[in-house]
Simulated assay, not measured.
Amino acid sequence: MNELKLGDVTVTRVEEMHGPIMPTEAFFPSMPDEAWQRHESALTPDHLGAGMVHVAMQTWVLRSEGRTILIDTGVGNDKSRPAVEAWDHLGLDYLGALANAGVHPADVDLVVNTHLHVDHVGWNTRLAGDDWVPTFPNATYLMPRADFLFWDPANNDDLAGGVNENVFEDSVAPVRAAGQVQLWEGSHTIDANLRLEAAPGHTPGSSVLKLSSGGDRALFAGDLIHTPLQVMEAGHNSCFCEDPAAAIATRRELLGWAADRNALVLPAHLSGHGALEVQRHGDAFAIKQWAPFSRL
């Protein structure tokens, strides 16, 4: 099962790809080996194997108040990604996966980029001849203003050789040039069910989307966590967090929000069942139960 109903909102999981991505010690430099070992049964085989962290690149498709909304758009095809060989000039059938979920590019009303890292904006655009054009021609793309400014090469001299090299040029700027970008800051209400909120730390503009509909609550958490181990060990960040202290504080605050409201947490990158409920465990957190999505 790749679809569920939360109040009046239908949520569908669409995969771009999944599998091992980085060694544990490289992805989470401060995480002690003992933590991986202690929680190994909860992590293997979906999230950990042979010392490698397993993740998914996926999009959450929301249907709310008559609109089709995509949350994050993966890595994308045909793009020059010199820092990550596995993502360089991909040729994946992501649009076919969307079509299998009943979504065609012209159907999309909103694209939410929770932040502007390489693996969240890739399918914002597609290659048409020699030009990058918006993949979703009728959509408004909601982007956090702080990330738009931070990742713009005109404001950032540090992108060469990093994972976000070329990303603004091929996946952000063409959408802005087409007049389809709406920048927001602080918070942004999408409709009666959905609200974006700033969640800085991982990047300056990192955000989450909160769902409140009927008796259901959900947190579309972007890169708040990359592995379920960060539920139990919330004080440890990935190597990609720009402001480590802020990332930890934001993670603890939002996991607490989710635990206190029985909210489903849907991060961008969890493979396996993809989403989970959390509960407080003393001054930490624990996995309460997994979502009923089929395992990747």
Rank of each mutant, 00 (worst) to 15 (best):
I190F: 09
V121N: 01
A218G: 06
I287R: 00
G201Q: 11
I248M: 11
V167E: 13
D107P: 03
L95G: 09
F285T: 10
A246Q: 11
A97W: 02
D157C: 03
V172W: 04
W36L: 05
V108F: 04
P228N: 06
L142H: 02
Q182H: 15
P82M: 02
S213V: 06
A258F: 04
D109W: 07
P29T: 12
N124K: 04
T227C: 11
L255Q: 07
L209I: 09
S64F: 02
F136C: 07
L296S: 14
G51D: 03
G272C: 09
D46V: 05
A245K: 06
H202E: 09
P137D: 08
E85M: 14
S213D: 10
R176F: 15
L254P: 00
V75Q: 12
A177E: 15
S213P: 03
W123D: 10
M1I: 11
A83H: 10
W151P: 02
F293Q: 03
V111F: 04
A259I: 03
S207C: 08
N138E: 14
K288Q: 13
G7F: 02
L229V: 10
P244I: 00
G66P: 05
T227L: 07
S80M: 11
A284Q: 12
W132Y: 11
A258N: 01
H104E: 12
A249N: 09
I69W: 03
D216Q: 13
F27V: 11
